[in-house]
């Protein structure tokens, strides 16, 4: 630049440059967002697409129909699948954070001999791949007559609610000032009261994080339930989609896409509602982990 600029001009060009950079940033992010959402937009679009449009090779519908959803819900057991899944999800969303925080309280706040060794044992289970224990567990649960019931997918979560969750709670509890508990002890609170009324309410961010984790994992899991559900009347939603829609195949594309949409609506809703807190929680979990 040969000619010297007046301060005003320099200011304006700097502002213009910032605008250009911002526009580039928005463009870049928008392109990324479109790429990332494209498959799911297609899924939603095609769930409303009549078969004629699909056969003509369209990506998005120009006609609109609810046939996919009608056929999906016309399947004889669909409501059962949904209720089965809801039962498992609700149970785990309540049980996992409670069980994990209860045990973590012992590892974070109570002093007893053997505590560190026990905690190390709990963490060591993270190393065991799920498939190693899957078959003996299947044999155990089937000898108890628990196949085709939600019990194998819920009852084990009462026992600790997952090693990684205990770890997260323990880390989080270490960050809570101990003085609060001391004060309540002086006021005569016993150990259960201290856990339930003092520590637990302070663990809200991590409680939410673990509860949402419990929700998404038990809502979407197909691998574990596949071992336990053999009776087509008793499937969970994920197993039903896997076995009925994917393996047996459905006649129309819109039915498959409607099944996918139905499966995704609830997690997406939970995510949108809790978005800000959740991403913070994931970051907390990530840093602590």
């Amino acid at each position: 630049m040969t000619r010297s600029l007046s301060p005003q001009e320099r200011n304006r060009s700097a502002r213009r440059q910032r605008h250009v950079i911002e526009a580039l940033q928005y463009t870049c992010l928008t392109v990324l967002a479109i790429i990332f959402l494209f498959p799911f937009l297609l899924m939603v679009g095609q769930s409303f697409m009549p078969e004629i449009d699909f056969q003509r090779g369209l990506l998005f519908p120009i006609h609109f129909t609810l046939r996919g959803y009608e056929q999906l819900f016309a399947q004889p057991n669909y409501l059962n699948y949904f209720l089965n899944t809801v039962f498992i999800v609700v149970f785990n969303v309540v049980a996992m954070p409670l069980a994990a925080s209860f045990c973590a309280y012992s590892f974070a706040r109570l002093k007893w001999k053997g505590r560190e060794l026990c905690f190390a044992m709990v963490l060591s289970t993270l190393m065991i791949p799920g498939v190693v224990t899957q078959i003996p567990l299947y044999l155990l649960f089937s000898s108890l007559g628990w196949t085709n019931t939600p019990l194998p997918l819920t009852i084990p979560n009462l026992f600790g609610g997952g090693a990684i969750n205990i770890f997260l709670f323990r880390q989080f509890m270490h960050g809570i000032p101990y003085e609060l508990e001391e004060a309540s002890t002086i006021d005569g609170a016993n150990v259960f009261q201290r856990y339930f009324f003092i520590t637990l309410p302070l663990c809200k961010p991590i409680l939410l994080f673990v509860a949402v984790g419990a929700f998404t994992s038990s809502w979407g899991d197909y691998f574990q339930p596949m071992f336990y559900y053999t009776d087509p009347e008793k499937y969970t939603l994920a197993v039903a989609i896997y076995k009925v829609v994917m393996l047996d195949g459905v006649s129309e594309n819109s039915v498959a896409m409607a099944a996918g949409v139905f499966m995704s609506v609830l997690p997406a809703l939970v995510f949108f509602l809790l978005q800000r807190k959740l991403i913070d929680g994931i970051m907390v979990g990530a840093v602590k982990g």
Partner: peptide, 26 residues
């Protein structure tokens, strides 16, 4: 920016069977 962050993260929370359906088709 937080909206964009959310949109980029969204595919992660779509259940495996649902994204399996979409990608099989895509």
């Amino acid at each position: 920016i937080s909206v964009y962050r959310m949109l980029l993260y969204l595919p992660v929370i779509i259940p495996g069977v649902a994204s399996g359906l979409v990608f099989t088709y895509m």
